[in-house]
Amino acid sequence: MTGAKVLLMMGCPEVPIQTSIALYLSHKLTKLGFDVTVAGTGAATQLLKVSDSDGYYAKKLVNLDNTLEDIIEKRADFDICFAFMHNDAGMTYAATMSAISQSRLYSIVFGRNAEALAETIEFDGEKIISTDVHNPVRLKNKLDKVVEEIVK
C-alpha cells in the first residue's frame, strides 16, 4: 500500500480529539509511506495550521468542500479515506464520500453520541467507534490496530 493516496476528512472541530487524532494519523501514515491529504472546514484546518505551523505532521492541508468537488468532477480521488464524524453532518459528508469516491472508507465515529451516530451509518466500510471527547488515547489505540491491518 506504500504510496497509496489517503484522505483524512475532518468535520466540525467542536470535539477536541479530532485535531490530535488527525495530526497523529497524518504523521503515522506519512511515515509508513502513504501520500496523505488532510481536508477540513475552515476552522478545522486553522486548528491544524496553528498546532502544526511548519506543516510537519500534516503536509497537505486542503479545503473539504473543494476536495469533494474535485472528486465529484473526477479531477481527483483517493485509495483510502478516513472520515471523522461526531454529528449527523459529519455522517452526511461521509455518506457523500462513499457515493462519489472509489476509496476504501473508514468511519471514525467519536464523541458522546458515537454509538448512536454509528447506528445511523448505512454505507459500507469499517467503523472505528469511540465515545471519548477529550482524551484521544483509546481512539488512537483503535486506529493503530486499523493501520496495522492496512499495512499487512
Binding site: 466540525c12 453532518a89 455522517m91 457523500t96
Partner: peptide, 25 residues
C-alpha cells in the same frame, strides 16, 4: 452533500433542497 437518496422538491416554481454545514447540521 447528502445521504442517498437525495430529495429535490418542486413547489410551484420554487426548488426545495438540502444544504449541509459541518458544524450546524
Amino acid at each position: 452533500i447528502g445521504v442517498p437518496p437525495i430529495a429535490l422538491g418542486a413547489k410551484g416554481n420554487a426548488l426545495i433542497f438540502t444544504y449541509t454545514k459541518p458544524c450546524y447540521g
